[in-house]
């Protein structure tokens, strides 16, 4: 019973906040609704028993990706009127894309239910250790059966990161005084300061 209530709560909240992402007038509000949508998706993951993925969803998407979104959107100087004007112009295109996605979804689920794709029968030979925790099961599959795909994904991300840095990196035009932290730390207080004990009424000569 509680599961059913929780499922509908998360699902309704998620769809509602997804709608709000699109319709919100302020882009910062949009990002905040997006965060709520991510969060509810994590709740749904917990409900199906995938707590590891749920936590990763929160850590990666809510904790890092959405923060960067928020960071960028907050820094932007956005003209709301212009944004509204673009909405009417781009609406047909968006609608077409949405329809294509819907059609693909219907087609995919329809084909799956028609049973035309041979997805194999679960014989249990690929099943990971029963009773192992979520984390252990994912690890067992990820680092054995899907090792190549996993490593390839990591490599692609690395290349993408290097590419982004190379594209945006500008060498400094003027050479500023560069700090050598090691040199600063090695500095001896005795060599840098002078202790004087002047008698009262007399100044200090440096």
């Amino acid at each position: 019973m509680i599961q059913t209530i929780a499922f509908y709560l998360f699902a309704v909240l998620m769809i509602a906040s997804a709608v709000m992402v699109v319709t919100a007038r302020n882009p910062v509000h949009s990002v905040l609704w997006l965060i709520l949508a991510f969060f509810n998706a994590a709740g749904l993951m917990v409900l199906v028993g995938a707590e590891f993925i749920a936590m990763l969803l929160v850590i990666v998407y809510v904790g890092a990706v959405a923060v960067l979104f928020l960071f960028v959107v907050m820094m932007l100087d956005i003209d709301f009127a212009e944004l509204r004007a673009g909405f009417i112009r781009n609406a047909p295109l968006g609608l077409v894309i949405a329809l294509i996605l819907l059609a693909e979804l219907v087609l995919g689920i329809g084909a799956y239910r028609a049973g035309t794709i041979d997805l194999g029968i679960a014989t249990g030979e690929n099943a990971v250790v029963l009773g192992a925790s979520n984390t252990a099961s994912i690890g067992a599959v990820l680092y054995s059966d899907y090792l190549f795909l996993f490593e390839a994904a990591g490599l692609i991300l690395l290349v993408a990161m290097v590419g982004a840095i190379v594209l945006t990196h500008r060498p400094p035009k003027t050479v500023r005084g560069h700090q050598n932290i090691g040199k600063q730390v090695r500095r001896d207080p005795n060599a840098a300061t002078v202790m004087k004990r002047p008698t009262v009424g007399e100044g200090v000569e440096l």
């Binding site: 905040l32 707590e51 590891f52 936590m55 929160v58 850590i59 809510v62 923060v67 925790s133 979520n134």
Partner: peptide, 25 residues
């Protein structure tokens, strides 16, 4: 007493930045 307790703490503490960012904005 959940299996992913440490990840849960990491997830929740990564949320705490939102309070600050939202307040500032």
């Amino acid at each position: 007493n959940i299996n992913v307790g440490l990840l849960y703490i990491l997830a929740v503490s990564s949320l705490s930045v939102y309070g600050v960012v939202m307040a500032g904005w």
